[in-house]
């Protein structure tokens, strides 16, 4: 069952600059994950966005200051799932041209790394 837990992300096309760059993602984890000391909709706040580009790097919690409602996630039995969208320029302090490597984590689950050239 644990193999069915994940966090996935993909880039939303049609970006021409870093300011337009957005990603969408989805996750499915246990509602009592050992590595996430919260449950239900609070799990969204544990999504961590990691971005690196050349010597620059940043790691942030995009939903830490966002009001999360109960129906923002789907709770089925002991599993919580949901989807999200992140506009990178709202959270990342560097921009400009270059090769960006982007991934998210949720507890001990890591998404694949997206490589995006701007």
């Amino acid at each position: 069952m644990k193999d069915n837990y994940f966090i996935n992300i993909q880039s939303i096309p049609d970006h021409t600059s870093f300011d337009d760059l957005r990603i969408s993602g989805e996750f499915r984890v246990a509602n009592q994950e050992e590595s996430i000391e919260t449950k239900d909709s609070g799990i969204l706040k544990h999504i961590i966005l990691n971005v690196t580009r050349s010597g620059n790097y940043q790691s942030v919690s995009p939903f830490s200051d966002v009001v999360v409602f109960k129906d923002d996630v789907l709770i089925e039995s002991d599993i919580v799932s949901g989807s999200f969208k992140i506009k990178l320029s709202d959270h990342i302090g560097f921009n400009g041209e270059g090769e960006y490597f982007i991934f998210c984590s949720l507890g001990t689950h890591l998404s694949d790394i997206l490589e995006i050239k701007i």
């Binding site: 000391e37 961590i48 990691n50 790691s59 919690s61 830490s64």
Partner: peptide
């Protein structure tokens, strides 16, 4: 150049 990330499992605060 390796970036290390640590996430507090209770507060979700990340350190890199």
């Amino acid at each position: 150049q390796v970036v290390v990330i640590a996430v507090n499992q209770k507060t979700a605060k990340s350190y890199s």
